[in-house]
């Protein structure tokens, strides 16, 4: 059963469990590859997570001169292959979301690989497995459709796409309805 990462942004309580969990994924070498941002840091405590959205047409891979960024059959855009990455950092410039990180010592780019060692077997990525507030969820398309029925949306924008994102992505992001001026039922 194909599952995907699904984000309900307004649930985020800023605990940064997802960052800590990310460090513990096999091969992440105790460095996290995702982010949590304060939306309006001087005024309130609203936070939102940000991680690789696994674009269907990934700019990072298109801009890589070494073909180091591979796309897995599950749609996950993988971290750079260590033997191929030449350290040009094109991917960090190309990514519309600013996700890839670069290690100057190791001359190597690393980014979210959707915990491919887990997700290729249908196990949720580390971040979603620890999220205490259901901001990050690991759902089948059917479950995502069921969620849609709980919401009363009049603009047809159930999960984000253009113009909030730059293209179609494998990770589905549900925008905070209140901030967008759209009614949500809970």
């Amino acid at each position: 059963m194909k599952k995907r990462l699904y984000l309900e942004l307004e649930n985020c309580i800023g605990c940064r469990s997802c960052l800590a969990a990310c460090t513990q994924c096999g091969g992440h070498e105790e460095r996290n590859r995702n982010y949590v941002y304060d939306v309006n840091p001087l005024v309130n405590r609203q936070t939102m997570p940000l991680m690789c959205l696994h674009c269907e047409n990934p700019a990072c891979a298109r801009s890589c001169p070494a073909q180091a960024i591979q796309i897995h059959e599950t749609g996950a855009v993988l971290s750079a292959l260590v033997e191929k990455c030449i350290g040009c950092q094109n991917c960090t410039i190309a990514c519309p979301y600013g996700i890839p990180k670069f290690d100057h010592e190791q001359n190597l780019m690393y980014k979210c690989d959707l915990c491919i060692d887990r997700t290729k077997d249908g196990i949720s990525p580390m971040c979603a497995s620890v999220c205490p507030s259901n901001t990050l969820q690991w759902l089948t398309d059917e479950e995502i459709d069921n969620k849609k029925k709980q919401f009363n949306l009049d603009n047809g924008k159930w999960v984000t796409s253009m113009p909030y994102l730059e293209g179609e992505t494998n990770v589905k992001v549900n925008l905070p309805g209140i901030l967008q001026g759209i009614t949500k039922l809970f």
Partner: peptide, 14 residues
Amino acid sequence: RRKYRIAQFSGFPT
């Protein structure tokens, strides 16, 4: 660039 994306999500210019 990351904050700009948060801004697109939230509607507030983070």
